[in-house]
Amino acid sequence: MTRYLARRLLEAVPLLILISVAVFFLINIIPGGPTAAYENNPHLTPQDLARIERELGLNQPIYVRYVRWLGAVAHGDWGYSLASRRPVLVEIGERLPNTIYLLGVAFAVTLALGIPIGMLSALRQYSLFDHTSTTLAFMGQSVPIFWFGLILIIVFHVSLRNPLTGLPLLPGGGMYTLGEPFSVWDRVSHLILPVSMLTLATAAQYVRYMRASMLEVVHQDYIRTARAKGAGGRRVVWRHAFKNAALPLVTVIALDLPTLFSGALFTETIFSWPGMGRLFYDSALRFDYALLMGIIMVNAALIILSNLAADVVYGCLDPRIRYV
């Protein structure tokens, strides 16, 4: 197990380096970069610009710059944001928890909705509940989430009002009300819309996976055996069927992480949530390239790690799989 983990982690390193090469070269094709801020400054002569470029090492060939970047990253120096002049790692470190907070809540809600509905749908196959949930899941998967976010704002922020105060029913942005003391309801009310937006499509997808996987399991011989041996309905469903049916979901969840991140980008942009997606959006508008590079690398690393985690968890849950 330890050997397997070590091998997989070692395998992840070249993959990350390859990704960083690709992204580094892409970012450096974009004209502008660090000297763009000085270009319109009339007090600077072309000689000054050349001097700045030399000092920043921008006159070096791109592969030299890449190797220097890699060396610096290995030492924990990810460069500075052009906009805020603060270290990239500090900027990301400030925003990442907010994104994890949002995605974590959304993920919990997604599982809490997706798994039971999918299971029930499979257990009552062809019932009214099954037809309704299957159709809704199919539709939910097809809703573009950025549009769904706008609709949520129109309905719950613009149209519906709190009957007591006349204020919008739910806040349309931010993580909490600025200048007000901490309150749980304030936090929760700010979560409802962004979480709903993130949940819809993913929950719909999990309903479909869970249903398909459950249907496959409930017709297996060992389920019949369990019933024949006198195990009750609930026990068979949870102890025998659910455990096996939920297995593939582990992989699905891990493979889904990129989708969750893109979801976060839309959600944080629409609901001005101070997370990493919003940070990326702002940096893209400003060509803040050290920050862009940092955010993409952090995301890529998280995606690769989650894939690894999924394989490990899968193996723990399924004794038929052995690590080689």
């Binding site: 990704i19 992204v23 892409l26 990129p258 991140f261 893109s262 893209a284 993409i296 995606i303």
Partner: peptide
């Protein structure tokens, strides 16, 4: 393994 939307924006 690319965070696709982020790389799309970059491209």
């Amino acid at each position: 393994s690319f965070p696709s939307l982020f790389v799309l924006i970059l491209l």
